[in-house]
Amino acid sequence: MPRISPKTSERLAKILLWGAGFLTVLILAAIVIYVLVNGVSEINWEFLTTPPIGGLSGEGGISTIIVTTVYLILITIFILTPVGIGAAIYLSEYAQDNILTNFIRYAVETLAGVPSIIYGLFGYALFVSALYLGHSLIAGALTLVCLLLPTMIRTTEEALRAVPQEYREASLALGATRWQTIWHVALPAALPGIATAIILSTGRVIEETACLYVTLGGSAAMPRSILSGGRTLALHVYYLAMDTMAFDKAMATAAVLIIIIVIINLFTNWLSQRFRSAYTAMEEGRP
């Protein structure tokens, strides 16, 4: 085998690496542009503000779907935030570093990797069937809380850990109790990180399909209470494409989804940059 000179292999490797990067961009561009090109022309005020006809027909807009998605986000975040932040505070501020804490951390990590459909199966068995909530917003939201909790805990814990220890020590030295220190010092300092965690969770609610497919029901009607069923934007894409062949409307809904995701991405980037700069300011502010 002829030996390739280091110089040639260097050049070859770089070409291949740039090729990989280029291909990745190409794939993303292909997906996003395809969806946007096919979808955006369908999006107009009427599409956003009229309800879908539902059932066999893929016609109509997505107003009720947007409302359902917003409801689901609000209910989920409302339950998720206190539990998630509470657990994160416990893990970062109170728990000792022992086998149990390590095990909890491992469990949280594992739970974060469990597929959505397993949460769906669980939510279906517990919330839909055993607790008689039926296929409903509340069953879907509770399932989502279980799904999102591990990530929420992990991200919040990381944000709390990033707060310099000196802050806490200073506060405690001034005579504040532990809780006062957490409430008035650690939490405010970690706020941008926690906000990021909440926004990321919101994004996940919007993206999720599998666990909602088996817990949310799929009615296209306007939900009247938390016991009503419904479908989110992502589920609507699935139903439109699979059940009604309304690929144009599915593309339009998918385009709305992508636009929302891009906005959320930009927002979290902005937040985490702020967080980073706030943190460096803290670091620099140290004597």
């Binding site: 990067g21 993303l28 993206e207 699935y238």
Partner: peptide, 28 residues
């Protein structure tokens, strides 16, 4: 500069709902 462009692209790929991938897969 390239990194500034590539990284958000990769991050955006994570965020695209799986059902959109499914839709594009189905149609295209």
């Amino acid at each position: 500069r390239a990194r500034r462009f590539l990284r958000p692209v990769v991050e955006l790929l994570v965020g695209i709902p799986s059902v959109v991938y499914g839709l594009v897969g189905m149609v295209l």
